[in-house]
Simulated scan of single mutants.
Amino acid sequence: MTKINKKIILASASKRRAEILLSCGIVHTIIPSGMDEIMDQTIPIKKIVLHNAKIKAEAVTKKVKNAVVISADTLVTHDGEIIGKPKDERDAKRLLKKFSGENIEVFTAIYIVDVTTSKKSYGVTKSDVRVAKINDKNINKIFPLLGPYDKAGGFSIEGAGSILFDDIRGSYFNILGLSMMALRRLFEKIGLDIIDFVTIPLQDKNS
Results as ranks from 00 to 15, higher is better:
P148E: 14
V115K: 14
S121N: 05
P144K: 14
D136Q: 06
N140T: 10
I142L: 11
G147E: 00
D128K: 15
K133E: 08
Y122W: 13
G123W: 01
P148A: 14
T117Y: 11
V131T: 08
F143W: 10
Y122S: 15
L145I: 13
K126N: 08
L146M: 05
K133R: 11
L146Q: 01
D128H: 14
T116L: 14
G123T: 05
T116R: 11
D136S: 03
A132S: 12
D128T: 11
K119D: 07
K120D: 05
L146T: 00
N138T: 07
L146R: 00
P148R: 13
V124Y: 01
S121M: 03
G123V: 05
L145W: 02
L146K: 00
I142K: 08
R130S: 14
V129R: 05
K120I: 07
N135H: 11
D128M: 12
G147F: 00
K120M: 01
I139N: 02
K133Q: 09
K119G: 03
V129Q: 02
I134K: 07
K141W: 10
I142W: 06
P148S: 15
F143K: 06
K126P: 03
T116S: 15
K120V: 06
N135S: 13
V129C: 03
S127I: 04
P144N: 09
T116W: 00
P144C: 10
K137A: 00
L145D: 02
V124C: 12
G123M: 05
G147P: 01
F143G: 01
V131C: 10
T117I: 15
T116E: 15
N135C: 07
K119V: 08
K137F: 11
K141R: 14
L146I: 01
D128E: 13
K133A: 05
I134R: 07
I142P: 01
L145F: 10
S127L: 11
T125G: 06
K141G: 00
G123Y: 00
N138M: 12
K133G: 07
R130Q: 11
K133M: 08
I142H: 04
Y122G: 09
A132N: 06
T125N: 12
T125H: 08
S121E: 02
N138G: 04
S121C: 03
A132K: 09
V115H: 12
K141V: 12
K137Y: 15
N135A: 06
D128V: 11
K126T: 06
I139E: 01
D128L: 14
L145H: 04
V131R: 06
G123E: 04
S121P: 12
I142N: 03
D128G: 06
I134G: 02
A132H: 09
V129S: 02
A132F: 04
D136W: 12
